[in-house]
Design a protein around this nucleic acid. Structure first.
Lengths: 147, 147
DNA sequence: CTTGTTAATGCACTTCTGTTGCACTAACAT
DNA sequence: ATGTTAGTGCAACAGAAGTGCATTAACAAG
């Protein structure tokens, strides 16, 4: 399978990367960013809380909100009822709602991943309807669980 | 635009219709069914609660759950965070997860409707991924709000 | 028509996620 | 070094979803 090689930021580069997006690189923020970077799957707030058991729920909540506001993280609604978050790839335009990549939710491992290279196809709507944004979640079994 | 005429059940036919699906036609259930039938848009539990202010939340909650279990109502996750419910059309196979129609959420009137005639197009997934279900919500402005 | 069983209803309570107010503390520029 | 701004932690709240249990209604069998 031919997969596009995506240049992931190096762990050591997190600090300037945050600064580039006008986010003060506090210790907590660097750790949360690192956590998201190390995980392919999108994470829910509760996952981040569990990983940083010592930290306060609110801080993590606001950290993610900051990341989202500054456009380096996007929220995913995968139908499980709890919001997931994933780092935006380079050049992601999710903040202007035109980056219509789709998401895959595996019913075995219960993880949600971005299929960044797969865009949502054009949909013909009935007369009078105008689309501005779209959310497509495919559910099934992921590559890791299908052997 | 050429719209398919859908035969909606008559209000007077609700009782036998529920019985056909092995649902005891209690007064409450008939009213809830009628409410869903009279609304084009999918309704959240809170909408049903507000409409039947005299009734208990739990009863309405379990009524909808029953409808869902018996396959006459399907749940819609439109990204607003609260689940919406809509009657299944005749021949809807949502319970076996193959009825992949899409949903439209209007950001003006905040209503969600089923676009029953619009199916989700085939998506090519990466190797190793198998799809079983899909959920596509388009957000924008609906016909009623776009004048 | 009565009776017994099963299902539906209503109330109270709990859980989970998301969110805000406020005091305290750390970061950074001057 | 110091003052302002931003980040953190605690508590509390809000909304939706779900459960336990006692009461009541529905319905089939006698």
């Amino acid at each position: 399978m031919k997969t596009k090689t995506i240049e992931k930021p190096q762990l050591s580069n997190i600090e300037p990367l945050l600064q580039k997006s006008n986010i003060r690189p506090t210790a907590m923020r660097i750790l949360v960013y690192k956590f998201l970077l190390e995980n392919e799957a999108a994470k829910a707030l509760i996952d981040i809380e569990n990983h940083f058991a010592k930290s306060d729920r609110t801080t993590l909540y606001r950290t993610i909100k900051t990341f989202e506001d500054k456009g380096i993280v996007h929220q995913i609604d995968d139908g499980t009822g709890t919001a997931k978050y994933a780092l935006c790839e380079e050049g992601c335009n999710c903040e202007i709602e035109t980056d219509l990549h789709l998401h895959f939710h595996c019913k075995i491992c219960d993880e949600t991943i971005c299929l960044t290279d797969h865009k949502i196809p054009q949909i013909n709507l009935p007369n009078g309807f105008s689309a501005e944004n779209a959310n497509l979640v495919i559910k099934g079994i992921c590559d890791k669980c299908s052997c």
